[in-house]
Nucleic acid binder design. Structure first.
Length: 216
DNA sequence: CCAGACGTTGTT
DNA sequence: GTCTGG
DNA sequence: CCAGACGTTGTT
DNA sequence: GTCTGG
């Protein structure tokens, strides 16, 4: 699963795609569902960054609480799920991250680990987004998950889909056929992932307290 | 047909 | 125990 | 994921 | 809107 992640630097993702970061983008160590998170998507033939709410709310949802149960989307079933099918075809995005967290141990005594790339400055998590036309018109996003690769499977059986670096633009292209898009959602083999025990305190309490400044 | 769900993970 | 909010 | 709440009525 | 369960 991926229910927490970090975005500490602008990272290779934005640089490689030539996307300018949003003004005022801060490093964040403890990103939670329901927060607004920076996401890269195609808009009128251009790649842009937008802050979307984490937890996907389909257009037909009755209320925004739907997003609470759609923070992840299983790659294996995207095609069949009413909540994700439209987005898979037309609304793919990249969620840039410098790491994600997984926990190990018994409930109440879990040790968090930060998983990050040993090769790059960050990675591109595959995501979907949707527009919900409620009173405020929320655009929201979900992180796609795949079976964990060998490294991560020591902690958990799922992990976010990390897109191959040379396919980032393909994933974001509205013209990419659905079948090809799905073929990009494979367990990571490219990032040489590293696991580091992480200070539990930094993931507790208010998110603001675990943030640090001046790292961009 | 209508009514109701539409999701994932983890844990047992 | 289970749901909600963050 | 974890932390924290989990309820209603009536009165101010 | 679309699928599933009854």
């Amino acid at each position: 699963m991926c229910a927490r992640y970090a975005f500490r630097k602008v990272s290779v993702v934005l640089d490689d795609l030539g996307v300018a970061p949003l003004p005022g983008l801060e490093p964040r160590d403890n990103i939670l569902p329901r927060q607004n998170v920076p996401v890269i998507l195609a808009s009128d033939g251009e790649l842009i960054v937008q802050e979307l709410r984490w937890g996907l709310i389909p257009p037909w949802a009755k209320d925004e609480s739907f997003g609470d149960k759609a923070i992840n989307a299983r790659s294996e079933s995207l095609r069949d799920k009413p909540s994700f099918r439209q987005a898979l075809a037309r609304k793919r995005c990249i969620i840039p991250a410098t790491g994600f967290y997984e926990w190990k141990g018994q409930k109440g005594n879990k040790q968090p680990f930060l998983i990050s790339s040993g090769l790059y400055d960050g990675f591109a998590m595959a995501g979907l987004y949707e527009d919900w036309v409620g009173s405020s018109g929320i655009r929201s996003t979900a992180i796609i998950t795949v079976p964990a690769n060998e490294t991560v499977s020591t902690l958990h059986n799922r992990m976010p889909a990390l897109l191959p670096r040379n396919r980032w633009r393909d994933w974001l292209s509205p013209d990419l056929p659905q079948a090809e898009a799905l073929s990009l959602l494979i367990p990571d083999e490219d990032h040489d992932l590293r696991l580091m025990p992480h200070n539990r305190e930094l993931l507790l309490g208010s998110p603001q307290k675990s943030e640090q400044r001046g790292l961009f």
